[in-house]
Design a protein around this nucleic acid. Structure first.
Lengths: 331, 331
DNA sequence: ATGAAAGCGCTAACAG
DNA sequence: CTGTTAGCGCTTTCAT
C-alpha cells in the first residue's frame, strides 16, 4: 500500500512547480491554459487530493463549523441539523457536532485549537463567560443568552405563547394551565411569560396551581397529566410549552379516561412532524425550524467566507398558531 | 487582538525546548517532574492550546470520524447520532456529519483529503465502487451493502418482521398486508422477506394487492391508508415496515372513520419514541438504535486508536416485538 | 531527561 | 505566467 500522492508528486508529473499546481487548483485563471491542462491531467492521473491538514495549517482556518446542541438525541434538532449541513456543504465547509451536555472540559476551549471556524450554539444555558471565551464567531439558534450579546436566530416565543393562549381564551376557556419547560431556560421563561401576558390582558389571573412544572419532555407530559388530573377545580385547557410534553399529556389523559379535546383542550409549542398526525391532531405554535437552521448557518457561513464580522442582531422570526383538533370550547 | 500563543511561546516562557513542551503535553512521564511543572505553568499562563491542524499534519491523522446518513432530517437517526458523538467524545475524536443525499461530488473522495479517520455509513444504497474507494475504515450501521464486504452493525430485520407477522397470525389474522419501504433498500427487502416467510410458514399465501408500495415516511403511510381502504376484500391487518408509516396509516384511518385496532390491526417497525405514546400505542418491532450507534462507533474508534484493522463482520443484534394496543383479533 | 533539527504538505510572497 | 522559497505549528527521531 503506497502513500497518497502529494502536491510535489503532481508537480513532478506535470513538469511544473508545486506553486503552479496549487494555483491551478485554487485560482485556475491565473495559470496559462496549456499548463493548466497538463496539471489537471497529472492530478487526474495520480488521483491527487490536497491534504486538508496542511492547507488548514497554512491558511489558518479549519473549513469547518461546529453545531453545539444540549442533547443531540432530541428529535427537535433533526431538521435544524439537516439545514445547517446543507448550507455548510454548499459553502464547502464540514459540519462538526457536539453535545453540550456530554462534552466535558473540551467545551471550554472550543475555538482555541483551530479545529473550527465558527459555532452554531443551540444551548442558552452554558456559562456566558465560557462562551465569551470562544475565539471564533458564534450564532445562537432557537435559544439565546440574555447576558451575552450574541447574534441569534429564534422565533418570537412570547408572541407565540400569547397566540396559543388567546386561542384558548377565544374558545371560552377561563382556567388555562401552563405546563412549563426546564428551569432556567429562556424558552420556558418566554413562553410562560406569554401565557401570563395573554391572561392578564383579558383580566384573567392564573391560580398558582395552574403553572405546572415541566421540562419539555414527553415523559414529563405524561407525569403532568397526573398532576393536573389530581387537582380539584382543574383548568379546562392546558398550554404545553412543547409538543412533546403536549403529546405525552394527551396520551396519558387518554389512558386515564380523559378525552382531549372533549374534557380538556391542549395546545402545544413547536409543531413537530408528529403533531399533525397525532390523534387528535395537535393545535400548536409553529416554529420554522428549518428556516432557523438555514438562516443561522447562512449568517455564520457568509461572515466566514467574506471575512466579515458578524453583526450582533437578534433575528426573530414570527411564530404562528396552527389550529387543529386538540382544542375546543369548554362545555 | 494578538495571535494565539504557539508551542515556541510556551517553550520560551518555560525556558525549555519545544520538544519538551510537546512531551509534557503528550507523554508527561517522559519529562522530569520539575521541568514538567514549569511547562504546565507556562501553558496555563499563556492559555496555550495545541493547534489541531499542525498536529494532524504531523501525525497524519484527523482525530475525527464522519457519520454519513441518507437524510439527516430523519428523526430516526437522532439517538444514533447522539450515541456516536458520545463514544467519539470519550475517545477525544470529533464527529463530522454529512448527508449522502446532499453531498455532491465531495462524496467520492471522502477519506482522501485526510479530513477524517473513519466513516460510519448509514446508507446502504451508495455506489459500492465509490465506497470501496474511500481510503479510511468504514463501519455500516442499520443498513448494509450486499455487494461490498464491510463490517456492519444492524438488527435482524427478517426475524423482526417474522415476529410481527407471527403475532398477527397468532391473533387470527389471515389476510395480512405489508406496507413496504423504499425500492432497492436492504431494509425494505429484508422486512418484506420476513413478512412473506412468516406467512408461507403457516401456509398463507399473500395476494398481490397485499404488498403496498411505501417508503418508510409518514406521508406515504397516510397515502397507503387510502390505497388499502379502496381495496375490496381488504386485509384485516397491516404490517408497516416503519413506525412512521404505521403512524401515518393509523392517523389517516382515523380520519377515514376506520378504527385501529377494531377495524384493522397495525404493526410497525423501529419502535421510535412516539410509538409508545401514540393513541393507540403502537405494537412494533424494537430496534436498539442507541446500542447500534454505540457498538458501531466503538468498533470504529477502537480500530482507530489501536491502529488495528477492522474485522469484516456483520454484527446482528436481536430484534424483539413490543406488543401494545394497535393489534387485536379480527372480528 | 532534554535539545536540535528535520520535516508533515501546502500556500503565498516575492522574483523574474 | 511561472518558479523559488519561506514558513504555518507541531511531533519525532537522533544526539547528547
Amino acid at each position: 500500500m503506497e502513500r497518497r500522492p502529494n502536491i510535489a508528486d503532481v508537480a513532478r508529473l506535470a513538469g511544473v512547480s508545486t506553486a503552479t499546481v496549487s494555483r491551478t487548483l485554487s485560482t485556475p485563471e491565473r495559470v496559462g491554459a496549456p499548463t493548466r491542462a497538463r496539471v489537471l491531467e497529472a492530478v487526474a492521473a495520480s488521483g491527487y487530493r490536497a491534504n486538508a491538514a496542511a492547507r488548514d495549517l497554512r491558511q489558518r482556518r479549519a473549513r469547518a463549523i461546529t453545531l453545539l446542541a444540549p442533547n443531540l438525541a432530541n428529535t427537535f434538532f433533526s431538521s435544524i441539523i439537516a439545514a445547517v449541513q446543507e448550507v455548510a456543504d454548499t459553502a464547502g465547509l464540514t459540519v462538526q457536532i457536539s453535545d453540550s451536555q456530554v462534552e466535558g472540559m473540551r467545551l471550554a476551549g472550543l475555538g482555541a485549537d483551530g479545529r473550527t471556524d465558527g459555532i452554531l450554539l443551540l444551548d442558552g444555558q452554558l456559562d456566558p463567560a465560557m462562551v465569551k471565551g470562544w475565539s471564533v464567531p458564534i450564532v445562537m439558534v432557537c435559544e439565546w443568552m440574555p447576558d451575552a450579546t450574541l447574534p441569534s436566530v429564534s422565533t418570537d416565543n412570547v408572541a407565540g405563547a400569547r397566540l396559543a393562549v388567546d386561542h384558548l381564551l377565544d374558545l371560552g376557556h377561563l382556567r388555562i394551565a401552563c405546563l412549563g419547560g426546564p428551569e432556567g431556560n429562556v424558552l420556558s421563561a418566554a413562553r410562560a411569560e406569554g401565557w401570563r401576558a395573554a391572561l392578564s390582558a383579558r383580566g384573567v389571573s392564573p391560580r398558582p396551581q395552574d403553572l405546572i412544572a415541566g421540562d419539555f419532555t414527553m415523559a414529563r407530559g405524561v407525569a403532568a397529566a397526573w398532576d393536573w388530573a389530581a387537582q380539584t377545580d382543574r383548568a379546562t385547557a392546558v398550554f404545553c410549552t412543547s409538543d412533546e410534553s403536549a403529546l405525552g399529556f394527551i396520551s396519558e389523559c387518554d389512558r386515564l379516561g380523559i378525552s382531549v379535546p372533549r374534557d380538556v383542550s391542549v395546545v402545544g409549542f413547536d409543531d413537530i412532524e408528529f403533531s399533525d398526525r397525532f390523534i387528535p391532531p395537535l393545535t400548536t405554535v409553529h416554529q420554522p425550524r428549518r428556516q432557523m437552521g438555514l438562516l443561522a448557518a447562512k449568517q455564520l457561513v457568509s461572515a466566514l467566507t467574506e471575512a466579515r464580522p458578524l453583526d450582533v442582531a437578534a433575528e426573530v422570526l414570527p411564530s404562528r398558531l396552527v389550529v387543529r383538533a386538540s382544542t375546543t370550547s369548554p362545555l
